[in-house]
Design a protein around this nucleic acid. Structure first.
Lengths: 139, 139
DNA sequence: GTAGTTGCAAACTTTTTGCTACCCA
DNA sequence: TGGGTAGCAAAAAGTTTGCAACTAC
């Protein structure tokens, strides 16, 4: 999927910091925050800095390796799965989980049909009570 | 749609600041940032403070009068239309526009069917090139 | 009258950036 | 070896908050 349109972009290096961050992201389904990733990364690389975490998250996102999410918070969460999929956000506990339903390309078609513009991708998020909090609220 | 669950909430007042902010939000389709709203509000109330703008945006959102959006930015945008509707975000110029297609309740049903939890509402955003930027890029 | 709201400014949180040293390709 | 990247720390950007004065109801 590499395109020729990135002509001026500098060559990228695989540093141990970048590799660690990517591994952390790919080994969790929790859509962590930069801070959490930083804490995890320090367990492997005690001297890594938060700035490096942010810089690499930015680079990885630009390269399409990860996704940045931002659900009604002042901070972002990151997703190690770069393929489009949908999310469920619990309004009670704040957890973000993947929703196990297929992506619907026809949504983009519909948006284009009504003149929204040229759609590259879309994001769909559901908000509500996760099964755990739902149980709790019932008590 | 008022519920009895708001028992402890303090009585709210309609101040000229709050009224002004609401009017600004309802008279634009541009989904402005807090900063833009602040600038606009100062044209009417030169002494209004940014803190007041944020406090009122928070209150209005809590009361369901407006919506808070946050699309891949570190800042929020606000929408004077509290009814659910979809948005298109231009990845080139950053503009946020409403998409003229009906809300699809069946999406929530599908998410619930796959065990996501109890869905209260959903958000759908399209990303791409708005008609204007599309034209520009072609040159 | 009084409790909610304001303006102001300081504080806070999250993210970005300048700089020098470092190390991957 | 050269240039992208790291660590560090300071700064930016956006938002929240404490407090005394004010005002809507």
């Amino acid at each position: 999927m590499e395109r020729e349109s990135h002509l001026k972009r500098a060559a990228r290096r695989m540093t141990k910091q970048k590799k660690t961050i990517l591994e952390i992201l790919r080994s969790t389904t929790s859509h962590p925050t930069a801070d959490w990733i930083y804490a995890e990364a320090r367990k492997v690389l005690p001297d890594i800095s938060l700035g490096t975490v942010y810089r690499n998250l930015h680079v990885l996102k630009e390269d399409g390796e990860i996704m940045e999410l931002n659900y009604g918070s002042t901070y972002s969460r990151y997703d190690g799965n770069p393929q489009n999929h949908y999310h469920f956000v619990c309004v009670n506990c704040g957890a973000v989980r993947d929703v196990d339903m297929p992506v619907l390309p026809e949504l983009e078609k519909r948006a284009e049909e009504v003149g929204a513009g040229e759609v590259f991708y879309h994001r769909l998020e559901f908000y509500g009570l996760c099964p755990h909090c739902r149980k709790e609220k019932r008590m």
